[in-house]
Design a protein around this nucleic acid. Structure first.
Lengths: 341, 341
DNA sequence: CCACCTCCTGCAAACGATTGTATCATTCTG
DNA sequence: CAGAATGATACAATCGTTTGCAGGAGGTGG
């Protein structure tokens, strides 16, 4: 709404040519302008309240200083901290964040990403990767910088910021074993996602390393990382193996589903059947019993993703294979796990 | 990364001048171009995969087709649905959403909004309004279209999409009264926010209309809409009035604080003391007992806000006082409320 | 048959910045 | 002191659109 003050105005006020004003204002080209001209221009700019027009600049430099982020489901509490992390890091460097909610559906993701690309984002952060994701594969040729977050893909190698599922599940299993559990089940996430698959494999690996049985009948896969699928999987699992004294859920929401299933059997969570989650989303420490879970540093995940993306956008790391980061989680032991009766 | 195809390319392919191509491609100016030229241009555009450059267009038209949204705290589960609603509505109309997390602090809000304005957003959706908010007041002169969401302000009149706090609190109080409660307390939100104040006043009003006492000793104000402040307020309230059989909390998170305070006194939520919340944020139906609360149509709040904003951006409603919308909530009765013993 | 109107299209100037190149005044060098 | 080197600034093109204006072709009416 305010009167638009342009570079030309600043130049006139300082008594120089617009191009000189431009150079005086830009840090990299400032050295080519004489000391006192710089001062005059900077003074004029401040006095007039000059703000460069991002569209004009972007048009010329072919950079929008904008990055797009695609979220599978913005209502999932998981993504709040990630977004906050990304945003704070990008903000420091003058980038803005365009958020797009893919709303579960795959076709919709396509459209949403297209519109981000049309907007000429300088980079893309995807939280929607599937293990086999042809869509992402051919995306890599359409946009300069891409970073995956939370989930990764097995196609084209891309930098990915994820948690160390092997370590995280290890903590959960070791915790249960230390409490004395031996009959431990797993409610897995969809194996089409790296998180579902990774935790599934980690569970089997760790069970074996503790000399415990991890045959397929102690494992049930939920169709989706949500409460209801978790409930359904837990019902099946406990029907097949009523002797289980503990369940490792691949995710907090699945763990909530387990709560419900356990209660429906007239059993007590923590007492009869211990449950562990994964993620440590907010508020679940207020459950009864409070959920034992594996805490992932999600905010940091966001900042790391932003850093990795900027490294690629600025071309710092154009060379070599993409670096991925595996963040180390920690176990948060609460009331949903206890020694078996 | 792809070879950039410009309007000039399309024009050459179609054998016309770029300006003609532009007119043929834009819906409003299309009528001035002959039928078969339009077809030729559109065909060429499709064949080449032409996508207009948003920066070039925006520079010329002085529109970015971008709106900014400022959130007080992106980790609050409340805002997920609102954002989703805003985004889906804006997306339909070709707008993109720039999200900024104000991270509680007021100075930070200033900076965040400035950067949105520098980005030349066409409009602004603010979820951060305080009742008395000089910052917003002078913002109104700096940006064309502003809409408030969730909270409103008492300064400059601006369109605001909020819930009907009076109706919502009325439902909660009436529900408790119907169950037989007479000694009802209120854990209020900060009265510096319209939501805190509105629900506080609504509580008093409804209590009186039921001929119940609502003196200041049955009301305690929490410093912030979060669990811990809610806990602290509830502790004070119950120490002062141990005879209360029900608490109306101004918000779900405050209600969770009440849960904790009630339990610390060795009492049972729902049995000894009933509790109601406000908002119906996800997952709280899984608590024990599940929270009785007032459900607000948050997604709709987002779409309404987007519609109102577009009306102002496109100048449809430049005339007259800003229209505000009060969305009607519904009561969701669950286990945290019961007849008094 | 000429003038005029209508329809379409092309021309060129913006929008506000960045940047390669030219120009000019110095100062330095031999 | 001539000529080259240096340093500071100005000029002008460019990024990809949109849009006011001019002009040409063809048709119509007087």
């Amino acid at each position: 709404m305010e009167s638009q003050v342009t570079l030309k105005d600043v130049a006139r006020e300082a008594g120089v040519h617009p191009s000189t004003a431009s150079r005086a204002l830009n840090a990299e080209t400032r050295s080519v302008v004489s000391q006192d001209t710089v001062e005059r221009v900077v003074g004029a700019a401040r006095r007039l309240g000059y703000r460069p027009h991002p569209l004009a600049r972007g048009l010329r430099t072919n950079k929008t200083m904008t990055v797009g982020m695609v979220i599978p489901d913005i209502e999932n509490p998981l993504f709040g901290p990630i977004i906050a992390g990304v945003e704070s890091k990008l903000g420091e460097e003058g980038y803005s964040l365009l958020i797009a909610d893919a709303g579960h559906s795959h076709e919709y993701t396509q459209g949403v990403v297209d519109s981000l690309i049309e907007r000429r984002v300088d980079g893309l952060i995807l939280a929607t990767a599937a293990r086999s994701d042809p869509f992402i594969d051919n995306l890599a040729t359409r946009v300069g910088a891409i970073v995956l977050v939370n989930r990764t893909t097995e196609g084209i190698p891309l930098p990915a910021i994820v948690t160390d599922d092997h370590a995280g599940i290890g903590m959960a299993v070791a915790h249960l074993v230390a409490l004395g559990h031996r009959d431990i089940g797993h409610v897995a996430g969809p194996r089409s996602l790296s998180t579902g698959m990774g935790r599934y494999q980690a569970f089997i690996g760790w069970m074996h390393s503790f000399d415990l049985q991890a045959s397929s009948d102690v494992i049930e896969e939920a169709s989706w990382f949500q409460v209801s699928p978790g409930y359904e999987a837990a019902v099946k699992l406990l029907a097949r193996r009523p002797d289980l004294t503990a369940i490792v859920a691949a995710n907090d929401l699945l763990a909530l589903g387990c709560y419900r299933a356990i209660r429906e059997l007239g059993k007590e969570v923590g007492g009869d059947v211990s449950v562990t989650g994964y993620n440590d989303v907010p508020l679940l420490d207020l459950l009864h019993p409070p959920l034992t879970t594996v805490r992932v540093p999600y905010r940091q995940m966001g900042t790391e993703a932003a850093s990795a993306l900027m490294a690629r956008m600025t071309g710092t790391v154009r060379t070599g294979a993409p670096v991925s980061v595996r963040l180390r989680p920690v176990l948060v032991a609460r009331g949903s796990t206890a020694a078996p009766l």
